[in-house]
Amino acid sequence: MKRQIPVLLVFAFGVFTLFQFFVPHESSEWVYEFLLDWILIIGVFAMAVGIWSLFRVSVEKIKTRKSGWGYSYITLGSLIAMMVFGFTVRNGEAWGWFFAFVAAIVLAVFLVIQAVIDRGKAYLFAGLAGLCVAAAVVMAALDPAWSIHFQTAEGLQSTMFRAVFDYTLIPIFATMFSLLAFFIASAAYRAFRARNLMATLLLLAALIVMSRFNPFLQPILGEYVAKTSNWLMNVPNMAAQRAIIMGVGLGIAATALKVVLGIERGYMGKG
């Protein structure tokens, strides 16, 4: 029951989607589209499990006072605040008690965490958390400046939700990505040494292609650099990519087949 049913499910759905590819009829399409919705919906429910895991790990850090445990509050606080922003919409220009409401909810969650950690004073912290929730409910009910929307997507356009995304997440993502400019330089410096034939080939090909984009080197090295780098991209690189693409295709097909047939059950921890 615990092991056989999953294997059967993998087999049944795997074989169906495998053959669906060859059946263009509407009925097969309908089922396939429905299955795509399953994947989406299961993914949405699974998100709760992920958030639960993030909570567990953070609370564990706070509980054991692991070095840097204070940062866990920042993580949890920003998580809750972001979710509140995504469900609330202002009804005009005024903010009203909005930020107090957000603070009350974040505080309530922190107090619940404290109650979980400090079992001795659990009732005290749980009581305080209850007060915070009550305050939040009162504010939500009485403040006309903003309202809560769970069922419609207005929250995605709310000022705070967009602002946090534009001014907090984007700069960090973009900067994180731009660290690559530095890492590619240090990786090239560290690894591109003519140690053996293979490393030399890698180094030479990289240097030629890099210098192609440099008009200062072009007068010195002549147009052959541009042409050679073009040749390197279109000939050896093309050959390498073709072989990898085909090899990977066969590897994927073989692995997927083993999974569908139940030969490989590593994804369930059974080899």
Partner: peptide, 27 residues
């Protein structure tokens, strides 16, 4: 990894790299 664009970076920065299909053979 089987992601072709990333293999060169792993080769440069890692001690051992499984190229493309080798990932599927590894298990």
């Amino acid at each position: 990894t089987d992601e072709i664009a990333q293999i060169p970076f792993f080769i440069v920065a890692c001690d051992y790299t499984l190229i493309g299909e080798e990932l599927y053979a590894a298990s």
